[in-house]
Nucleic acid binder design. Structure first.
Length: 943
RNA sequence: GGGGCUGUGGCGGAACUGGCAGACGCGCUGGAUUUAGGAUCCAGUUCCUUCGGGAGUGCAGGUUCAAUUCCUGUCAGCCCCA
């Protein structure tokens, strides 16, 4: 009996597509192009996860659908293959990361092909290929060669940077230094996670709670010379660009919040000699606010200049460059040991709201510019060096963290904002016992008393600006991008550092000439850490490490780029993947960019999407590409969770505990109200039943049970393996199931029985066309050349319409539901017109391409169904001879009447009133109001 | 603590712009067929019901002829950030 057998059909058609290059991107772009892109995966050793095919199936459906509609489609795939796991593997085993990476890529490729995705495999790229990272390095050099012209809001060649005359006068070296300070790629000291015990620098992911993930050794934050990318200068452009793209509003908001634009003021607090204050203030009055603060002041950034009268102390971050000068001899020891301790904390630990605030008095005082009062300067780690100026004016009355700190160290709290009259805690706030962060009217603020917060902000800033003590300022939470990593398995920087005869760095840098790219990774004996706080590439032999160019000797940069680098621009390379003359042919770039549909997980909502937009804008400014934003439409697929689990709890004696009694304690353990620890047990569906809102134990309905789906994870053991699903049900079933589970964007739990459900559907499709009873593979005798009757025609065309519209709007689940209805309808029919079957198969093809190809061929189709044009629906075919319209009385459906679909309002009204059931209900009542919506309903309001 | 998302049958979900709540699938119940079934086909499946009806989209209100949909409040879960 010829049954639907995906394990035979699927590999055969995959081989066919490969052999005939069915999905090769056309050389000539047609009338309409469509660039459909997946976020490329990191090829992990675990292989594909069922989360991957969700987005990939969605884009594959759109790609196949678009091709059928005559569009020219670019649909590529590649691998983001640099990264930590391969390097860790190399350290452990000595195997070169390249080997493991290749193995993983091969496995991923096999799995992706097994699922029948219509990628143009000729365009596959891996970020680790030398032909690829050559151009990653080239783009880095573009960044290195660019400065940001703030007036024009545009990146320009460094050669165009206006150099001040006094710098020019100091000669070429000074000019070079000046340029280096303005490049988009620059070097600066930044904190890295140095683990002395492991003898290596760790990535943030490798540090947990201040300890190394491996071994649990202490990790210290030490400054190291790092490459930074000046993404902050593009902050405004990155914000503006969001208005022009079709992205989920949630993602746009995340990006805006990440950029974190705020407006406020920079204010200078005098820290110099007390007796000279008058003279200093006078000089400021004439000179005005200066761009760079000098040593006589501590500059702060604040979003609340209106609270300046309440600034009762100041805080500098432990890394603040003026800290040494500010620290008095008496306080020296305390400050130094405090900073040492702070260096072991992560930013997160430092700013965590739950932690007790720590800090040390520096011994110095500053002068509050608004009222001339002396305020103490403290050092505390809740102030970060990277935000604002790395120093704050503390207003404990109106800032939560300042308030906590002030209470901790018994500092003065002066309320300067009067809350609204009806505020429940007004008295306590005015007494300085409670912090108030919202707006109100100024008090204790001299001439500003009584004015509203916003007015005071502007007035204070303006007044201090006249005095030369403050200026309006815009600040961003976004920080420059720390772009170097102390890793082996990444792109080497194409930068050379000049060394003198003694082998010391002169501080002069130069780019590796373009003709010498790529800078390859050196061959190392092994990948073990060398025990110094510098990158592993420093282990390379001199042949790699030292270069002579134009008679000068250079040492190569030994940092490598972060994993983001390769993923920042891969969408460009797919357009012209084999070009060895340029990153991309500008003509091809114009044809294909921007990406029309970009699908991937929400975990990349901020970083990847922000970084690639930044690079894109730089390349755009420098004239290498033609569109200002890379990704026109973005869709985030939801997460697929494991199967729903029922979990109950038992105490130490194994007695069941109801889930509503169970809470988590501070250590994260599950405990009952009396503090006893309970353990959780997984229950089967048979052991529980629904009761009220939740589930209870069947044997004891007083015991409530938790029912929930969890994130798939190895440790939980609920990971679904796509290989197994394909073996058991076939690739088409896996594809179809993932699309049928629910809306693409939603988080949804896996259910293996659901895969069986869609497999049943595909079996039914098979039997709709192939005779299941015959011994040979023959077409069902219900199929013939007869035309559709009216009902069949309506079903066919309604299905074409629904599937077309739903596929366009990415509502795949409802498109599939409609195809199921079609199949149910026609499997029941004794007569199945061949043409209807063929049109249906074209609709099914993007969703279940292997089965569609097979049945297409069985029905006598000549070439691949992928070459068939998408059917159009006929509006006339959809018209029904009569429709059913509900008649409501007081908003409740009481009767249904059959009328012509195009019935007029009057006729519908008449028909409703003449219905016997309606008449009976209206008996003895008065109709107060009548609503008649033609084709929809009739509602009669009666008394 | 802040922000976002989501609450609809036993389960996943559907419902266009406010217009018949529960499409489609799973599961379950009954029947047919079969040596057999994790196959197929048919019928049923929100709950309550005195079989007339009544209630129902987390909960409480509001707007409306009409609310899953709009508004206010509230609760719960999940995700992200701190």
């Amino acid at each position: 009996m010829p049954r639907y057998n995906p394990s035979e059909i699927e590999p055969r058609w995959q081989a066919y597509w490969d052999k005939h290059a069915t999905f090769r991107t056309p050389d000539q772009a047609g009338e309409k192009k469509r660039y459909i892109l997946d976020m490329f995966p990191y090829p992990s050793g675990d292989g594909l996860h069922v989360g991957h095919p969700e987005g990939y199936t969605a884009t594959d459906i759109v790609a196949r659908f678009s091709r059928a509609r005559g569009e020219t489609v670019l649909h590529p795939m590649g691998f983001d293959a640099f990264g930590l796991p391969a390097e860790e593997h190399a350290i452990k085993t000595g195997e070169h990361p390249r080997i493991q990476t290749q193995r993983n890529i091969d496995n991923f490729t096999r799995q992706l092909k097994m699922l029948g995705f219509s990628y143009d495999w000729d365009r596959m790229v891996s970020t680790t290929d030398e032909d690829y990272f050559r151009w990653t390095q080239w783009i880095f050099l573009v960044l290195y060669d660019t400065w940001f012209d703030a007036d024009a809001q545009k990146g320009r060649p460094i050669a165009d940077l206006p150099v001040p005359a006094e710098v020019e006068a100091q000669g070429a070296e000074a000019v070079g230094k000046y340029q280096d300070q303005h490049r988009l790629a620059y070097q600066d000291d930044a904190l890295v996670n140095w683990c002395p015990a492991l003898g290596t620098v760790l990535a943030n992911e490798e540090v947990q709670d201040g300890k190394s993930e491996r071994g649990g050794h202490p990790v210290k934050r030490i400054p190291l010379r790092q490459w930074m990318l000046r993404i902050t200068s593009y902050a405004e452009r990155l914000l503006d660009g969001l208005d022009d793209v079709d992205w989920p509003i949630g993602i746009k908001k995340l990006q805006r919040d990440w950029i974190g634009r705020s407006t406020g003021a920079e204010v200078d607090f005098y820290v110099g000699d007390e007796e000279a204050y008058g003279a200093w203030a006078e000089s400021r009055r004439t000179s005005g606010f200066c761009a760079e603060p000098d040593a006589s002041v501590l500059r702060v950034y604040t979003t609340r200049p209106d609270t300046l009268f309440g600034a009762t102390y100041m805080v500098v971050s432990p890394e603040h460059e003026m800290l040494d000068e500010l620290t008095t001899e008496v306080q020296g020891e305390a400050v130094r040991s405090y900073c040492e301790k702070a260096s072991f904390k992560s930013d997160r630990e430092r700013t965590d709201g739950d932690r007790v605030k720590t800090g040390v008095f520096t011994g110095s005082y500053a002068t509050n510019p608004i009222n001339g009062e002396k305020v103490p300067i403290w050092v505390a780690d809740y102030v970060l060096a990277g935000y604002g100026t790395g120093a704050i004016m503390a207003v404990p009355a109106h800032d939560e963290r300042d308030f906590e700190f002030a209470k901790q160290f018994d500092l003065k709290v002066v309320p300067v904002v009067d809350p609204p009259q009806d505020h429940p805690e007004r008295a306590a706030i005015m007494a300085g016992d409670v912090c108030f962060v919202a707006q109100g009217n100024a008090i204790n603020s001299g001439d500003f008393d009584g004015q509203k917060t916003n007015d005071v902000k502007a007035a204070v800033t303006a007044m201090l600006n006249r005095e030369g003590l403050a200026a309006e300022a815009v600040n961003y939470k976004l920080r420059d991008w720390l772009f170097s990593r102390q890793r082996f398995w990444g792109e080497p920087f194409p930068i050379l550092h000049e060394v003198d005869r003694e082998g010391n760095l002169t501080g002069v840098k130069r780019a590796v000439p373009e003709s010498q790219l790529p800078v390859r990774l050196p061959e190392l004996e092994d990948f073990k850490p060398h025990g110094r706080p510098e990158p592993p590439l420093a282990k390379a032999d001199d042949e790699w490490l030292y270069v002579t160019l134009d008679g000068k000797r250079y040492r190569r940069e030994t940092n490598t780029m972060p994993q983001w680098a390769g993923s920042c621009w891969y969408y460009l390379r797919y357009i012209d993947p084999k070009n060895d003359q340029a990153m991309i042919d500008p003509a091809l770039e114009k044809v294909w960019m921007p990406v029309d549909l970009y699908v991937g997980g929400a975990e990349h909502a901020v970083l990847h999407l922000l970084y690639s937009r930044f690079w894109h804008k730089v390349l755009y400014d420098r004239g290498h590409i033609s569109c200002p934003e890379p990704f026109g439409k973005l869709v985030n697929q939801g997460m697929i969770l494991g199967e729903v689990e029922f979990s109950g709890y038992v105490d130490e004696d194994g007695i069941a505990v109801s889930s509503h009694e169970v809470k988590r304690n501070a250590e994260g353990e599950r405990v009952r109200a009396n503090g006893d620890v309970v353990s959780s047990v997984t229950l089967t569906e048979e052991q529980v039943e629904k009761k009220g809102e939740g589930f209870v134990l069947k044997d004891n309905p007083a015991i409530r049970i938790d029912s929930r789906a969890f994130k798939m994870s190895k440790s939980r053991g609920n990971v679904v393996n796509p290989d197994e699903v394909v073996r058991e049900y076939g690739a088409d079933s896996l594809r179809l199931y993932e699309m049928f589970m629910g809306p693409l964007e939603a988080t949804k739990p896996w259910a293996m029985t659901g895969v069986g459900g869609v497999r049943n559907f595909l079996d039914r499709v098979w039997r709709m066309i192939v005779d299941p009873k015959a011994d040979e593979l023959v077409v069902s005798d219900a199929i013939g050349d007869q035309p559709c009757d009216a009902d069949q025609k309506r079903m066919l065309h309604a299905t074409i319409k629904k599937v077309t519209e739903d596929t366009e709007s990415l509502s795949f689940n409802t498109a599939i539901a409609r195809m199921m209805e079609f199949t149910n309808f026609f499997t029941r029919a004794k007569s199945r017109p061949k043409e209807a079957m063929q049109q249906f198969l074209i609709l099914l093809n993007p969703y279940a391409p292997h089965l569609a190809e097979e049945l297409w061929q069985i029905l006598g189709g000549e070439e691949s169904i992928a070459k068939q044009a998408w059917p159009a629906w006929e509006a006339e075919a959809l018209v029904e001879s009569s429709i059913e319209v509900p008649v409501q009385v007081n908003g409740k459906v009481k009767a249904k009447i059959r009328v012509a679909p195009d019935v007029s309002k009057d006729d519908l009204h008449k028909a409703a009133l003449s219905d016997a059931k309606v008449q009976a209900l209206l008996e003895g009542k008065t109709v107060v109001k009548e609503i008649v919506v033609p084709g929809r309903l009739v509602n009669l309001v009666v008394k």
